[in-house]
């Protein structure tokens, strides 16, 4: 398959954007005026990682629908790869979120809507892999996984909404319907980090898809020689 941009180029691009974003975050964006100070800089990675995790799960959701419509194994491969990367990014969200929480609020964990939602997201998508591991037949595994990926992705915003019923938390609300609430220089740094992180996701998806395709081919070849 001929690709528009080669995979290594995507990694290089992601790296450049992420480094520039980081430099801008420290040198160009203002230091947070409130009590957070320098610790607020983690926001320039924390939020883009969170956004990227959700994008990965969103792609898995679309891939699941496409799989159910076409039964084409390539959509199943895309689904697995996206959920795996989404989980990886979610784990990073939790880690960066906890570090930030410790610096800003003095506590590692707070039962706050966004943090709680991400925790549940992690459980949900770990369950996705548990589900895959207990179905042997390939087609059935892909179908069940697709159904679960659809249900899980629908559940994420609902869970987030439900956590609003819990007693209020401390998480800053940066992007609201009325604007971003960020000064321009902060927004530029944030935006560049976000592009970098998204590029990194695309690059990783591309690479992992290649690996999965190879795995499937190896399995097919093994079957064909009766192994």
């Amino acid at each position: 398959m001929k690709q528009l941009v080669s995979a290594p180029m995507l990694f290089v691009g992601a790296g450049i954007f992420l480094i520039v974003g980081l430099l801008l975050a420290f040198l160009y964006a203002p230091i947070d005026a409130s009590t957070m100070g320098y610790s607020q800089k983690i926001f320039f990675y924390h939020a883009p990682i969170a956004e990227t995790a959700l994008v990965a799960f969103g792609v898995a959701f679309v891939a699941a629908i496409l799989y159910l419509r076409s039964q084409d194994p390539k959509w199943d491969r895309l689904g697995v790869v996206c959920v795996r990367l989404g989980l990886l990014f979610s784990a990073l969200v939790m880690a960066t979120g906890m570090i930030w929480g410790k610096a800003a609020w003095g506590t590692w964990w707070d039962w706050e809507p966004r943090l709680t939602t991400f925790l549940l997201v992690c459980f949900l998508y770990v369950a996705y892999f548990v589900l895959r591991s207990v179905v042997e037949e390939e087609e059935r595994r892909a179908t069940f996984a697709a159904v679960f990926a659809i249900i899980a992705f629908i559940d994420v915003p609902i869970t987030f909404f439900a956590t609003r019923f819990l007693p209020a938390g401390m998480h800053p609300t940066v992007i609201t319907t009325s604007g971003t609430g960020m000064p321009g220089s902060m927004f530029v740094s944030f935006f560049i980090s976000m592009i970098g992180m998204t590029l990194l996701l695309v690059a990783l998806i591309r690479r992992d898809l290649g690996v999965e395709e190879l795995k499937d081919r190896v399995a097919d070849l093994k079957n064909s020689i009766g192994g």
Partner: peptide, 13 residues
């Protein structure tokens, strides 16, 4: 494992 995380919103409400 697949049911409990999905049902949390209902539990909360």
């Amino acid at each position: 494992i697949i049911f409990l995380p999905l049902i949390v919103p209902v539990l909360i409400a």
